[in-house]
Write a protein that binds this DNA or RNA. Sequence first.
DNA 1: AATGCGGGGGC
DNA 2: GCCCCAGCATT
Length: 351
Amino acid sequence: MSHFSTRLTTWQREHGRHHLPWQVADGYRVWLSEIMLQQTQVTTVLDYYPRFLERFPTLADLAAAPLDDVLALWSGLGYYTRARNLHACAQAVVRDFGGQFPPDPALITTLPGIGRSTAAAIAAFSYGTRAAILDGNVKRVLTRWAGIEGFPGVKAIENQLWTLAEALLPEPNSDKDIATTAIKAHTQGLMDLGATICTPKNPTCLTCPLSSDCQARMSGRQAELPTKKPKKTIPEKSTVMVLLRNTQGEILLERRPPTGIWGGLWSLPEVSTTLSAAEIMDQRFGLAIELEPALPEFIHVFTHYRLTITPQPAYLIGSSALREDQTAWFSTSAALAAGIPTPLRKIIHSI
DNA sequence: AATGCGGGGGC
DNA sequence: GCCCCAGCATT
C-alpha cells in the first residue's frame, strides 16, 4: 500500500479539478479566491470572482481603491468583515511586503483576515511551500480516514486534526520542482476529494484512493463522521426598516457601524416598531416624515438567528437636508450598485 | 473555549 | 427544513 500522499496526489492529477479560475501560481489571485471561499461554496464564488478581478486586476489596484468600492462588489457574498480585511490586507502587503505575498505562512498569517489554514493555502498554491491546510473538506476527509470522533469545531479535536494534517504532508524532496508540484497536488487533492468523493452525504467510496485504509469505510461509519455540530435553537428577532423617499424618489440610507451584522454596509434606518418611526426619524436625523402603509413583512435567515423585517415606506414632509455624513440619499440604481445587504436588495426590487 | 459573522447550494 | 460550505477575529 502506497503512502497517503502518494495515492492522493496521483488521484488529484488524474481525477481532480484543474480548471478553476484561481488555479494559478499568482499570490493575488490565490489569496482573493481563498478569502472568498471562506465558508462559501465554489459555485457561489465562481459568480463573484471574475467581477471582482475585472474591477481590481492587481493587488495594487485593490489597495488603492476606496473601501466602498470593495464592499459594493462583495455585496451579497456575506461575512463582510472579509471585505474590510481584504482591503486592509492589500494595503498591508503593499506597505510591508512590496506588493507580493511572502512564501512563509508564518508571515502570511500576520495579515488581516488570514488565519493558519488560509495562509497555508496561499503559500502552497503560490509557492509550493510545505504547509498543511485544515478547512471543512480536510476535516471531513481526515476524520473519516483516521476514524476521529468528536465535533471538529472543538479545539481538542481540531488540534488533533492539525497534527495529522501536518504528518500526512508529502515528504520533503531535494528536487525543488518535484517538492512544490507534490505540495500543490496534495493540497488541491484534499479539497477535491472532499468536494467530489468524500462528500458530506453519500460519499462515493468506491472511487476513493484512500478507501482501502479508511477507518470510517472499514467500520461503516461514513454517515457518523465527522461528528455533527451540536444543534442549538436559533433566536427570532424583528426589525422595522424605514424606506424613506425624498421628492426625487431617492432613498435614505445609513452606513452601519464597522462591526456587527452587515458591518460597514449601507442599509435602511431601523426602528423597533412602526409606532415610533416618525418620532425616531425626527430625533435621529432631523427629518419630518409621514408613514405609508407597511409593506409585507418577510423573514431573513442568518446562521445564528432569524430576522423578521417589516419594510415601512414613508415620505418626507419638510427639508431633505442631512446633518450626518453617515447618511445619504441614494437613487435606487445607486443603491443597487452600492454595498448593501441582501434583504435591502430584495426590498428595492419589490418597489 | 465559545461565539459572532451571510447567504446560498443541494438534498 | 436541514446541513454545511477552501474560517477568522474576538471575547
